[in-house]
Computed example of a mutant assay.
Amino acid sequence: MNDPTDLTGTGLSEAWVTELVERTLAEDLTGGAPLPAAPDLAVANDVTSSATIPPAQYGTADLVARADGVVAGLPLAARVFLRLAPGATLTAGAADGDRVRRGDVLLSIRGPVRALLAAERSALNIASRASGIATHTRAWVDAIEGTKARVLDTRKTTPGLRPLEKYAVRCGGGTNKRMGLYDVAMIKDNHVAAAGSVAAAVTAVRERAPKVAVQVEADTPAQAVEAVEAGADFLLLDNMAPAVLREVVALVGGRAELEATGGLTLAVAREVAETGVDYLSVGALTHSSPILDLALDLRAG
């Protein structure tokens, strides 16, 4: 395995990860106040471990999967441990994006036991959340395997955790299409009402942000045709039955990318994908994924 803390290929910046690690540990150790720079001073805030564990006691802790799934966030979890135990030795047992089974050891950390236990919950919260999203995403990707459609996430993310959660979607085989309000223009019914028409809204966006891709929400085949003729790059096909989606694909397929959304479930995912749309947009990937159950098992000595 490579360096367990390596962020290469994650798309996550060093600065953002460092800030997340600090914020997450401070939430647990100082009630949100800035974390002491000295690891020993930070660990001292764990009143239970400080009272029950000698400062010189060393041990090895294993980050273990308690359920089958797809893992994500392991480099961030590793950095949580190193923040409180900078001299710890880390050994990777898995990498982000791997399918794992119950009982698999994902990461082993050898260091001061006080520090390992002080970091435990923060590391688990990050990795469990990210792995839950990756696992849920993989279920959707598997459900539509063999079709041309891809699974997309949305902006329905936990405040402050969007980079991590969208990275977790990628670990599960999904695709990020819109990171925020700045990189794709999404014209919905309220924008159309304010602008006066779909064409007016598209024109206004083109003039204001000529390099930004434009997506238009459509509820009917007629609206889909209107949006494409107005110059939309993508169509968001909202709450359309599979038969209607097939009609839209026949009318405008190839002239714009087509994204089905609204009311999608795993039970109908393949039927929707087989209509010929390019994407299935699933907000539940980030707003409703259960965590993947992970635990930290200490080996004394």
Rank of each mutant, 00 (worst) to 15 (best):
T8A: 14
G9E: 12
T10W: 05
G11W: 08
G11M: 02
S13Q: 10
A15H: 14
W16I: 13
E19Y: 00
L20H: 11
T24G: 13
T24N: 15
L25P: 00
L25N: 05
A33N: 09
A37H: 10
A42W: 01
N45S: 12
A51G: 03
P54Y: 14
Y58Q: 15
Y58A: 06
G59V: 09
T60W: 03
A61T: 04
A61E: 01
V70I: 11
V71A: 11
V71C: 09
A72Q: 05
A72I: 06
G73K: 08
L74Y: 09
P75M: 05
R79P: 02
V80E: 10
V80G: 15
V80S: 13
L84Y: 12
L84F: 12
A85F: 01
P86A: 05
P86L: 08
G87N: 14
G87S: 07
A88N: 05
T89V: 13
A95D: 09
G97P: 07
G97D: 11
D98S: 11
V100R: 05
R101C: 02
R102P: 00
R102F: 01
G103C: 04
G103R: 07
G103S: 07
D104H: 15
L107D: 03
R110C: 01
R110I: 00
G111R: 09
P112T: 10
R114H: 06
A115S: 15
L116T: 08
L117H: 10
A119D: 09
E120M: 12
R121C: 03
R121T: 11
L124P: 00
N125Q: 14
N125Y: 13
A127T: 14
S128C: 14
R129C: 02
R129I: 01
S131M: 07
G132R: 14
I133W: 03
H136Q: 13
A143C: 10
A143N: 12
A143W: 12
E145M: 01
G146H: 13
